[in-house]
Amino acid sequence: MKEKINEFVRSLSEAFEGEPWYGDSVMRKLENLPYEVGYKTCIPESHSVSQIVGHLIAWKKLAIERLKDNEEYSIEIDSEIDWPNIQVHSREEWEALKRKLVAAQGKIYELLNAVEDDSFLSKKVKGKGYDFAYLLRGVIQHDIYHIGQIGLIESQLKKKEIESGVFKT
């Protein structure tokens, strides 16, 4: 039986591209964001939306490697891999970045769909002190956390960019 795994897939999907009760999913938030603000920040020290998307891709890749039992792959916190310096200056670049994010999410679904039964969820992740259920809850929580960041950046930039016409009123 894969009832719990199927529930994780539904929860991952809801946060990523669905209609969660708390507001926009990751992709809905990104689809409604003009590419022109993808590289902008609210304050100089903060991350841009495109950097956050790169960060989401990086951590989805980590989850993919963990799901494939690759204990060698890791991400150093605050490194270039963790927070890539992505600059988006065109609609094409913005769409390509979003496609990479969707592809990473799709790979997670693919790997979970190949799992035979729910016992997988209690299996320890190689080299870690946690199981796959914990890893998957983390992926969901990570998406939700960064939706909030993107929403905050969007609201702050709307105030700054309203005169430029980037955001339609």
Results as ranks from 00 to 15, higher is better:
residue 91 R to A: 06
residue 100 K to V: 13
residue 95 E to H: 07
residue 116 E to W: 00
residue 109 Y to D: 15
residue 88 V to T: 08
residue 87 Q to Y: 01
residue 79 S to C: 04
residue 132 F to R: 14
residue 117 D to Q: 01
residue 94 W to A: 03
residue 76 E to S: 04
residue 83 W to K: 14
residue 101 L to I: 11
residue 132 F to D: 03
residue 134 Y to A: 13
residue 119 S to E: 03
residue 125 V to T: 11
residue 107 K to R: 15
residue 110 E to F: 06
residue 115 V to K: 15
residue 75 I to C: 02
residue 95 E to P: 10
residue 81 I to M: 09
residue 130 Y to V: 14
residue 94 W to K: 07
residue 94 W to G: 08
residue 114 A to P: 00
residue 119 S to I: 10
residue 94 W to E: 04
residue 77 I to L: 07
residue 74 S to G: 05
residue 127 G to V: 01
residue 84 P to Q: 09
residue 80 E to F: 04
residue 132 F to P: 10
residue 85 N to I: 07
residue 113 N to S: 09
residue 89 H to Y: 04
residue 73 Y to I: 12
residue 117 D to R: 00
residue 89 H to F: 01
residue 79 S to K: 05
residue 107 K to T: 14
residue 98 K to N: 07
residue 115 V to R: 13
residue 94 W to I: 13
residue 77 I to F: 00
residue 90 S to G: 07
residue 90 S to V: 10
residue 86 I to N: 09
residue 83 W to Y: 01
residue 72 E to H: 03
residue 126 K to F: 06
residue 72 E to C: 00
residue 119 S to F: 04
residue 118 D to H: 06
residue 85 N to F: 04
residue 123 K to F: 03
residue 75 I to H: 05
residue 109 Y to Q: 14
residue 92 E to I: 13
residue 110 E to C: 02
residue 126 K to D: 09
residue 115 V to D: 02
residue 115 V to C: 03
residue 111 L to K: 09
residue 124 K to G: 06
residue 133 A to R: 14
residue 105 Q to L: 01
residue 135 L to K: 11
residue 88 V to R: 04
residue 74 S to T: 15
residue 104 A to N: 11
residue 75 I to Q: 03
residue 96 A to W: 02
residue 107 K to L: 07
residue 137 R to K: 11
residue 92 E to K: 12
residue 97 L to W: 05
residue 80 E to A: 12
residue 95 E to I: 13
residue 84 P to Y: 06
residue 73 Y to N: 11
residue 126 K to H: 06
residue 124 K to C: 04
residue 124 K to H: 07
residue 100 K to L: 08
residue 83 W to M: 08
residue 82 D to Q: 03
residue 126 K to W: 02
residue 98 K to Y: 01
residue 124 K to W: 01
residue 109 Y to R: 14
residue 85 N to C: 04
residue 70 N to H: 06
residue 91 R to C: 00
residue 94 W to D: 03
residue 98 K to W: 02
residue 129 G to T: 08
residue 85 N to H: 10
residue 94 W to L: 07
residue 85 N to W: 05
residue 85 N to R: 15
residue 108 I to M: 13
residue 76 E to A: 09
residue 110 E to T: 14
residue 122 S to H: 09
residue 88 V to W: 01
residue 92 E to W: 01
residue 87 Q to R: 15
residue 130 Y to G: 06
residue 126 K to V: 14
residue 78 D to G: 01
residue 89 H to A: 11
residue 82 D to F: 00
residue 115 V to G: 01
residue 116 E to D: 07
residue 116 E to K: 13
residue 119 S to P: 02
residue 131 D to F: 04
residue 136 L to G: 02
residue 111 L to T: 12
residue 121 L to V: 10
residue 103 A to G: 06
residue 128 K to H: 02
residue 72 E to F: 00
residue 107 K to P: 05
residue 99 R to P: 02
residue 138 G to V: 10
residue 135 L to W: 03
residue 78 D to K: 09
residue 71 E to T: 02
residue 119 S to Q: 10
residue 79 S to Y: 05
residue 128 K to G: 03
